[in-house]
Design a protein around this nucleic acid. Sequence first.
RNA 1: CGGGGAGUGGCGUAGUCGGCAACGCACGUGCUUUGGGAGCACGAGAUCGUGGGUUCGAGUCCCACCUCCCCGACCA
Length: 573
Amino acid sequence: MRLSHLFFTTLRDDPGEAEMPSHRLLLRAGYVRQLGSGIYSLLPLGKRVNDRVEQVIREEQDRIGGQEMEMPVVHPADVWRASGRYDAVGPELGRFKDRNGRDMVLAMTHEEVVGLLLADVVKSYRQLPMQVYHFQTKWRDEPRARGGLIRVREFVMKDAYSCDRDEAGLDVSYWAQHGAYVRTFERLGLETIAVSSDVGMMGGSQAHEFMVLNPAGEDVLVLCETCDYAANRQIAIVPKPDAAPEDALPLEEVATPGTTTIATLAAFLGVGPERTAKAAFFMTGDGRLVTAIVRGDHEVNETKLVNAVTATGGIRPATVEEIKAAGMEPGYGSPIGAHDTVVVVDDLVARSPNLVAGANREGFHYRNVNVGRDYTADVIADITNAQAGDRCPLDGGTLTLRNGIEVGNIFKLGTKYSDAFGASYLGEDGVAHPIVMGSYGIGVGRNVACIVEAHHDDKGIVWPAEVAPYAAHLVSIGAAKEPRVSEVAERLHSLAAEAGVRHEILWDDRDESPGVKFTDAELLGMPWILTVSPRSLAAGGIEVTERATGDRSTRPIEEVEGLLVNGFEAASR
RNA sequence: CGGGGAGUGGCGUAGUCGGCAACGCACGUGCUUUGGGAGCACGAGAUCGUGGGUUCGAGUCCCACCUCCCCGACCA
């Protein structure tokens, strides 16, 4: 490809609003342009990278027997009503009406369609197990897009669906996908950590998220320093030592003016925060007020809380009015004397005697509050966030917290969608059984961004060869003075093009100064930069520079021709 | 949705007290230059986010709205 004809432009200055390196570089180097919040165009260079990433994913899906297909972006709403998700999912599901007033949906995922197709196509156990996948646009009207391609509203996802006869079969498919993901991310040049994760609204029994560590990541990972325990903080187990046994003391009301936070309360009373109970209030989607009690030195984990009360539609912080309506006083709240609220108590609080808790009266707390005696827990569960320094549930090692970006996930779905759509098969036993499903997603654009996050320097992008849009970047200099420069460049360019799409090179044939060309070559990030100039020809050939290392050498023209045809692997040796 | 910030040629920005919309880069033409973001000359390019208001006069002041970014909430 001749750069003079490429639909792109580089920016000399950093775009003002791009904060993450990947966003800044993809904009500056002319790979992407923004259309709206969380909506991006891929320019030709961006499209080529995207295609290369897709191809890696495709090869690894095919390797485990995945069959590529394609399902629609626009679905009749009835399909989503059948699974219950038309109502269960909030405004992030795009909805509109067609010209006849029928409710329609912009797909955010494709379990429903797969369920329908399975009901139609699969009849016998002989057709299982089976996996299908496709690359398709998703629309998710996220509350807030951020970080360039990291979190967008419209994006292409590889979503795969495994279909098995039973749980044992699902387990095999699940771990086959796990292996495919490990190979995929390795080929993409991403260092990932597979963490156990929440099954969320997808339903199901087991899930992993593949995470890359990144300070701007939206997820918090809980990692053990001494073993391979790794979990999303949303579900990370928090082992808690038993509190020292004490006899329950009588309840005692104390005046604690101006102590609406645990810190001020503990300081006022001269006790540690671990001797207090903290109350947090939430409303569930179905209108229940949840009072969550954790010890003062912990914080509430909302995912665990949602799971503890099986809150479909999630939870949101309760308003002051809602809290007061249940007989509690924000800032001085506790379940003591409260009504019309679901009380969820962290297991540690349930075992901790004589805590300080709110008196539901402004400016007052109780000492020596004991669960069971002074108020009743509707649910006792682990509802706290893991904290740095906590003990690992596996080997007792020290836990650390790191931020991560989710580049892929795998879910054991079970039969939720096959049940909803009547997707069953006739077994050897002559009886109908529901098909057991799994679902497996990789966001393509987010992976592109994460690759740039992991592979760039102060000059620009440094693509791994596996995903680079072109095999090399050819810079021709001094063509006006030495006609052989253009001749040689022309020959290399067409030779590479004839060798196939994976061998194509980008030729900067523009009439620009050498400085501009070198700077752009480094910004664009092809793994190899070839320079042909009167100087290089005089030195015996072509200057070959490895982008990642900066290693530079002059090679005979015939050798470079060989690299173009046979691949640059030989050049690294 | 809450908090914060920003909308001025393609990009990055300046614009003071309300008084001819400016600078750098990029772009076009010509000449010079050609191994690390060249020089000179000339030139094109702006509904100052939108609507309303105040004023002799609004990029600037007031009101409403829209959009984008960041933090949080949210998130399959």
